[in-house]
């Protein structure tokens, strides 16, 4: 099973769950995060809806970065299996865009590894989103909130930091 998949097609979470469980038979916890496309433009004051997102990436570099992010997560939070699926191309509002799955012995590692992977995906993986809708087209930049979420891991190499959130 490949840990990183970049594809245009939608994915079936139930199918993915069965596959991850089958590949991590000793896991005691499985965490899934699924990101959906919001229907509003990303700017804070927007009440206008988008029709779809257009996602592009840097083939080759993106897969390599995602794999590297998974390995970084594994070094911090031991887990049995992780999988990332990220869609590209045209994706409509409310459709699935990204999935991060982590199976580990205990829930804390699975929760934290999934969050780490997602935070790093948003700030390091070479994907670009364009919103298309009533207001026209606009490429999205990196958000301060994403940078902030990602930076909280940088001075912590152990599992202790996530507990600060609780």
């Amino acid at each position: 099973m490949i840990d990183v998949v970049i594809c245009e097609q939608d994915f079936d979470v139930g199918e993915q769950y069965a596959q991850v469980c089958a590949l991590a038979p000793r896991a005691g916890a499985v965490v899934f995060f699924v990101g959906l496309v919001r229907d509003l433009y990303d700017s804070e004051d927007s009440s206008e809806t988008i029709d779809f997102l257009e996602l592009e990436h840097y083939p080759g570099m993106t897969e390599s970065l995602c794999q590297d992010i998974i390995e970084q997560a594994r070094q911090r939070f031991p887990f049995d299996r992780a999988r990332v699926i990220h869609r590209v191309g045209k994706i409509h509002a409310s459709e699935q865009i990204v999935m991060v799955a982590v199976a580990s012995r205990h829930r804390d590692d699975a929760f934290q590894a999934a969050q780490f992977i997602m935070d790093y995906l948003k700030t390091r993986a070479t994907f670009w989103k364009k919103e298309v809708g009533a207001k026209g087209e606009q490429w999205l930049g990196r958000k301060e909130s994403d940078l902030s979420a990602s930076s909280r891991w940088e001075n912590n190499s152990s599992k202790s930091n996530s507990l600060e959130q609780e």
Binding site: G35, L55, H57, Y58, M61, H86, I97, V98, M118, L121, K122, T123, R124, A125, T126, F127, W128, K129, W139, L140, G141, R142, K143, D146
Partner: peptide, 10 residues
């Protein structure tokens, strides 16, 4: 050489 605007995946 890739010239990469700020990324916005996820």
């Amino acid at each position: 050489v890739g010239i990469l605007p700020p990324v916005s995946g996820g």
